[in-house]
Nucleic acid binder design. Sequence first.
DNA 1: GCAGTTGTTTAGGAGAGGTTAAATATTTAT
DNA 2: ATAAATATTTAACCTCTCCTAAACAACTGC
Lengths: 233, 233
Amino acid sequence: MKRSGSISQENYLKAIFKLQHEHGIASNQAISEKLTATPAAVTGMLHKLTELDWVEYTAYQGAKLTAKGRQIAISTIRKHRLWEVFLVEKLQFKWDAVHQWAEELEHIGDVDFTNRLDAFLGCPSTDPHGDPIPDSNGDWKGNERVFSADALTRKQKFTVRGVSNSASDFLRHLDALKIQLGKHFEVMDYFPFDGSWEWKDDQGISIRVSREVAGQLLAEAIPTNRGNENQES
Amino acid sequence: MKRSGSISQENYLKAIFKLQHEHGIASNQAISEKLTATPAAVTGMLHKLTELDWVEYTAYQGAKLTAKGRQIAISTIRKHRLWEVFLVEKLQFKWDAVHQWAEELEHIGDVDFTNRLDAFLGCPSTDPHGDPIPDSNGDWKGNERVFSADALTRKQKFTVRGVSNSASDFLRHLDALKIQLGKHFEVMDYFPFDGSWEWKDDQGISIRVSREVAGQLLAEAIPTNRGNENQES
DNA sequence: GCAGTTGTTTAGGAGAGGTTAAATATTTAT
DNA sequence: ATAAATATTTAACCTCTCCTAAACAACTGC
Ligand SMILES: [Mn+2]
Ligand SMILES: [Mn+2]
Ligand SMILES: [Mn+2]
Ligand SMILES: [Mn+2]
């Protein structure tokens, strides 16, 4: 089995998929920004994707994926995230360096290939940035208990679960702060003056975290332990 | 660092590299057959590659790689063969199924990426078809003791070292004959009538091998053991 | 409700990499 | 040496995906 669509088409479907989740519909402009193409190019491609029946598109309104389009988008995202796991776990890339390569690798391989990669990696459920990896049926479980770290409250203990921004400079900044996925912190203080925080890690080491950082970090609250130590399964 | 040339350009350089080895120069027709493109397309691309200084090309004569062209070709071949090892060793693909995917994967990754992949795979020296894998300097050691299996002589013991044809149907035929790389055989008989052979493996199991098969198998002779059992290191 | 701003589409065109068919070179055979 | 066969190049055109500039639709403010 060959690639579903061209590389460019798969990139469009992926972009529309993500925008549809955020805004219900993917506007021409939003797509054009996400793919750094001109709005004119987007209009042209939307016509083609409509022809292929992968997108439903009303002029001046925006685009939504059809069932087939969504399937292709999800399978591309699945491949992207699996390759990212491969790059970090097997090739020892840092998490800020994998996106560019995954952006190319995601267009390679059919269902069988992807399932083999998945199995080889031990069927991971999230990628190096905490994003869920769809299974071979295109299903995944979002973690509903995850929320933006700027919604934390004093004394709250939490686990870092993901980032809502995978830009290299942000990820390297997290490295500098020694913030990694899975790490536990406790909220020590909040400073309304600039929206910054003080968090303390397991070793009792405190870090100062800016509003910008907290706003793009995803956290999961750890229930206050009442005679029950291990919340992690 | 990004890709050296476009995917198409890399495919041309690879084809020219191989043809140059076989015939000293890559003719338009040979290239066109190897890439299943029309001769007209080849002429066009040779002009472009000449512009880039990756190829030296004389009209009606043929093409040869420049130093830079050879470097790109070798690095592409290195990636191709490393990915093939990955697909067989890590994703459990059969050796007849890896070429198609490697043909796409070979265009991904820079020098650092490739070296990481190489290290992860344990710096293999040959791919699943016995072909040598260039190191990061573009050097590799060909095995001079390897020759075509149709040049064997009766009573000769040998090791299967490679295939000179990686087509799926040939590889599956070898699977059916239980012929694998590294396996030892002894030549029991040769039948001039149809050029076929009888070979016996380690377990004393005999197989009949056609002229076509022997002609595309690469063997390495095992020196007749004079009080020296293990020739393999 | 109408002007202005903003977003979208259309028109025209570019470049990369192909194709087919015709024109040329080159090689082979007589 | 010349005619025929074969290989290569050129010419014209195609598809894909992108671009810029101009036309057009849809919102916004008042
Ligand atoms: Mn991509
Ligand atoms: Mn990711
Ligand atoms: Mn290729
Ligand atoms: Mn191979």
